[in-house]
Amino acid sequence: MRVADIIGVDRMRSWGLALLSASAILGANSAWAASTIYSCDDGKGHKLTSDRPIQECLDREQRLLNKDGSHRDTVPPRMNAEEQAVFEEQQRVKQAQEAARKDAVRRDRNLMLRFPNEAAHNKGRVAALDDLRKAIAISEKRVAELQADRKTLMTEAEFFKGKSMPFKLRSRIEDNEATQQAQRDIIANQKAEMVRINALYDAELARLRRLWAGAPLGSVPPAVASGTAPR
């Protein structure tokens, strides 16, 4: 047999297999369709059945039945554009709520791993406040130094009472006062931050106490609305 004839036979075999596969698929689809019956009431007292979705019942539920008449599934009614938009919005809200629930569970789990008991939480609070206390102590020490410098400057300024104070001396006094005020502002800000952190830890502790007592993860409302305790 010639090579060309051999190639021709192989091609015919390939085409034959492809046709058999396609026929098998079509046969399977036809068998499924034949075994499925759509049924509905058209709203006028008529019960309709078909082997495909019933056009007269697209606005209502259609029951999918097996060949023996047993119920297999229910096909929901088709929606118009407005109904579809409402449905999609409901689905979006539902998905957002589920994502928020899972996130709350994750946060609670991490929180309890970080603070397994109240002693661990108190230790975390102390650590969070420690840097602020150190910063306040540094600023207070700086203010004391500036006050001592100002006392020296004012003693020097006494020599010019009733006279024009030298520009350099006046500038040093003004700089001293401005620097003192800046340090006082830093101290006030650090103390305000300490109050904020303590409030956050207080709210977090109240949440943890409920979780430690057995409340399900994700079931306790957020401890605070404006932030979370520092990590």
Rank of each mutant, 00 (worst) to 15 (best):
residue 2 R to W: 05
residue 3 V to K: 09
residue 7 I to T: 13
residue 8 G to I: 04
residue 11 R to V: 11
residue 13 R to M: 15
residue 14 S to F: 09
residue 16 G to N: 13
residue 18 A to Q: 11
residue 25 I to V: 12
residue 26 L to D: 11
residue 30 S to W: 11
residue 31 A to K: 14
residue 39 S to Q: 14
residue 41 D to A: 07
residue 42 D to T: 06
residue 43 G to V: 02
residue 45 G to F: 05
residue 47 K to S: 07
residue 50 S to M: 06
residue 51 D to W: 03
residue 52 R to C: 10
residue 53 P to R: 02
residue 58 L to Q: 11
residue 59 D to W: 12
residue 59 D to V: 04
residue 61 E to I: 05
residue 63 R to Y: 14
residue 64 L to N: 01
residue 65 L to N: 03
residue 66 N to L: 13
residue 68 D to E: 03
residue 73 D to I: 01
residue 73 D to L: 05
residue 74 T to C: 02
residue 76 P to K: 04
residue 78 R to G: 13
residue 82 E to W: 04
residue 86 V to A: 11
residue 87 F to S: 15
residue 96 A to L: 14
residue 96 A to Q: 12
residue 104 A to L: 01
residue 110 N to H: 14
residue 111 L to F: 09
residue 112 M to H: 12
residue 116 P to W: 00
residue 118 E to N: 06
residue 120 A to S: 13
residue 120 A to P: 03
residue 123 K to C: 07
residue 124 G to M: 02
residue 126 V to F: 07
residue 141 K to C: 05
residue 141 K to S: 15
residue 144 A to G: 02
residue 150 R to A: 13
residue 160 F to D: 10
residue 162 G to C: 01
residue 164 S to I: 08
residue 166 P to W: 00
residue 168 K to P: 00
residue 171 S to L: 09
residue 173 I to F: 02
residue 174 E to L: 07
residue 174 E to P: 06
residue 176 N to L: 07
residue 176 N to K: 04
residue 179 T to Y: 04
residue 179 T to D: 15
residue 183 Q to K: 13
residue 186 I to T: 10
residue 187 I to S: 12
residue 188 A to W: 12
residue 189 N to F: 02
residue 195 V to N: 09
residue 202 D to R: 02
residue 203 A to Q: 15
residue 203 A to E: 08
residue 203 A to R: 06
residue 204 E to I: 04
residue 206 A to L: 07
residue 206 A to P: 09
residue 207 R to M: 08
residue 213 A to S: 10
residue 215 A to M: 00
residue 219 S to T: 03
residue 221 P to V: 00
residue 222 P to K: 07
residue 224 V to I: 09
residue 225 A to M: 12
residue 227 G to T: 06
residue 230 P to Y: 03
residue 231 R to P: 14
